[in-house]
Design a binder for these strands. Structure first.
Length: 565
RNA sequence: UGUCCUGUGGUGUAAUUGGCAACACGUCUGACUCUGGAUCAGAAGAGUCCAAGUUCGAGCCUUGGCAGGACAACCA
């Protein structure tokens, strides 16, 4: 089934960044122009936290009639790969955003950055330091203690220039020396204590190959790229707050008129029961704790996509959680609510039995196949109806039957009558067991007058069960997912590795599932609601002979709540 | 012994010239229902980190505390 277009969209509410921008527009800053950028480092797959940033950056520009650039922050060739560039572009597009032809790379600016560094050297604002990393680090001081100046700090401009050229030309080994800005070793802000601008790396770069032996540091690249691209609002996460004075310092050295990009920080997303750091996600992938970056249990965008999340559901989630500077923790339940809300309006309904229990309808003609009409989506009349085959033997869900039902159990039990959805009323007459006392099948009778699901005498039943014909069905594998971690903050424990909290039951594979024949025509990533069970989508592992479904999320279930009381 | 940032129901956000705290998720009732879904109606739950001050009036302003977070990679 193709994706329906009637996605639900939550109105983007105004956040503190929008407020700042509106104030700027009122002041006439940048002539009312708004230009943002999304700057991923291509060293891993995007996750739901990046989705928040993408929605913020693209959404803010859209809101104020501006543009958003995509810029890969590729200043460290030892970590970055083209595979990641491709996945990032796919994910942003899938989320529904477009950067037009404004696809940039920090590496596009390597020449300009080099020239800028030369300018700083000429102005006596940068110098080559021959000390090793450890020494430089020890001279930095601590957050509470000032640093000390490097003995190389006052080299002549000419000497600095010569050495910088030699660095560029590969005349040194990695670690021999670095280029540093000459700012203030006494600054209370660590980042202003003569930060490193360039380091030597003899690693080929995914775009510039072996052209460069020196690469700029993040701080020396990011703000300048913003400046050259005409970015007005450079939105980043809270940990860069202390970098802002340095960001501004570089812009001060660069700017030629009133224009200057402004860095604004917001709190990154933390989701309960998951980890969000790229390093930890990479670890899960590399050590095979999950099947890959797109494992449906991963909080990556590709994982959520494979799990069955829709772009609209992620966008809505992102709008709903808001944007602030408060470092908090969002309940995964809100993410789940967002998919249910969207899928409820759009998903094709079908019937599927995950844990089959055979039912023989003893008074139904053998060999007969009836086609019964079923509604495709009660939330969307336009979705129409389909036919579902009914036969003498059917499967129902094993836990839809109880031999000795408690008070509030409304489903099938000995002697009780229930409705089979879109079919007939049936009454349980016999419970068949094996030698060990396990229930192997049920015998029921049906009321032919209740065809379609209603009895002409107005008789009511308390429950409606989903079912699938024993002979007219598609057998499928269904993968049930639970949270990957059993702890709310798996990486929040100082002495315990986050992997200790991995949930051993996060994946449950059911191979004996029966789905109504309608699903034969479905394609990977198609969304369904298996009635009464939850939302599922077809996994790309499916082959024509074997369909595989992922459970995106369960339906809200008041019965299980009742049970847990 | 520093700099910067943050503190509003269980969670997340709102309260725009100071006017007795709103919304969403979650929770709990009930109605309706051919999905124990959805929908609808309703409830509980904070007096805004603390203290003092200004004011007729403070979540918003002032002062002083307290608590949490970020910063010491040739990572981003």
């Amino acid at each position: 089934m193709s994706e329906k277009n009637q996605e639900t969209e939550v109105a983007v509410k105004k956040n503190f960044i929008h407020q700042i921008i509106e104030d700027e527009i009122k002041e006439g800053k940048n002539n009312g122009r708004v230009h943002t950028r999304f700057p991923p480092e291509p060293n891993g797959y995007l996750h739901i936290g990046h989705a928040k940033s993408i929605c913020l950056n693209f959404g803010t520009a859209q809101k104020y009639g501006g543009l958003t650039n995509l810029r890969f922050d590729d200043t460290n060739p030892s970590k970055e790969e083209t595979e990641y560039v491709d996945s990032i572009k796919d994910d942003i597009r899938w989320l529904g955003f477009d950067w037009g032809d404004r696809e940039y790379y920090a590496s596009d600016y390597f020449n300009k950055l080099f020239d800028f560094a030369v300018k700083l050297i000429n102005e006596g604002k940068a110098y080559i330091d021959d000390q090793d990393a450890e020494t430089i680090s020890s001279q930095k001081g601590t957050p509470t203690r000032p640093g000390t100046e490097s003995p190389y700090r006052n080299r002549s401009v000419q000497e600095n220039l010569d050495l910088f050229m030699k660095m560029k030309d590969g005349g040194f080994n990695e670690g021999d020396c670095v280029l540093r800005a000459k700012i203030d070793m006494d600054s209370p802000n660590m980042h202003m204590r003569d930060p490193i601008l360039y380091r030597i790396m003899k690693t080929p770069h995914h775009r510039t190959g072996d052209k460069w032996y020196i690469y700029p540091m993040y701080d020396f690249a990011h703000g300048q790229c913003d400046y050259w691209e005409g970015i007005t609002n450079s939105i980043c996460t809270l940990e860069f707050e202390v970098h802002r004075p340095l960001y501004d310092w570089f812009i001060d050295q660069l700017k030629s008129d009133d224009y200057r990009p402004r860095q604004i920080e917001f709190a990154r997303l933390n989701l309960s029961y998951t980890v969000m750091s790229k390093r930890k996600l990479l670890e899960l992938v590399k050590d095979k704790h999950v099947k890959g970056w797109d494992d449906p249990r991963m909080p990556t965008i590709s994982g959520l996509r494979r799990r069955g999340y829709t772009p609209a559901s992620i966008r809505n989630f992102s709008d709903r959680i808001g944007v602030t500077k408060v470092d908090g923790m969002i309940d995964v339940a809100l993410l789940e609510h967002s998919v249910r809300e969207d899928l409820n309006k759009t998903a094709q309904r079908i019937m599927g039995v995950l844990d089959p229990l055979k039912v023989v309808i003893t008074n139904y003609p053998e060999g007969q196949v009836e086609q019964l009409e079923a509604v495709n989506n009660p939330e969307d009349p336009e979705a129409g109806t389909r036919m579902v085959p009914f036969t003498r033997e059917i499967y129902i869900e094993r836990d839809d039957f109880m031999e000795n039902p408690p008070n509030k159990f409304f489903r099938l039990a000995p002697g009780r009558e229930v409705r089979l959805r879109y079919a007939y009323f049936i009454t349980c007459t016999d419970v068949i067991k094996d030698a060990d006392g396990n229930i192997t099948e049920l015998h029921c009778t049906y009321d032919p007058a209740s065809k379609g699901g209603n009895s002409p005498d107005g008789r009511k039943v308390k429950a409606t069960l989903h079912w699938v014909s024993v002979t007219e069905n598609v057998k499928a594998e269904v993968r049930l997912y639970d949270r990957l971690f059993s702890d709310e903050t798996p990486d929040g424990h100082k002495d315990v590795d986050f992997k200790e909290f991995m949930n051993p039951g996060s994946l449950q594979v059911l191979s004996e599932c029966y789905i109504e024949p309608f699903v034969k025509q479905s394609k990977p990533f198609d969304h369904f609601q298996f009635e009464r069970l939850g939302y599922f989508n077809l996994d790309p592992d499916s082959t024509p002979g074997k369909l595989v479904f992922n459970r995106t999320v369960q339906l809200r279930d008041t019965w299980s709540k009742e049970q847990n009381k």
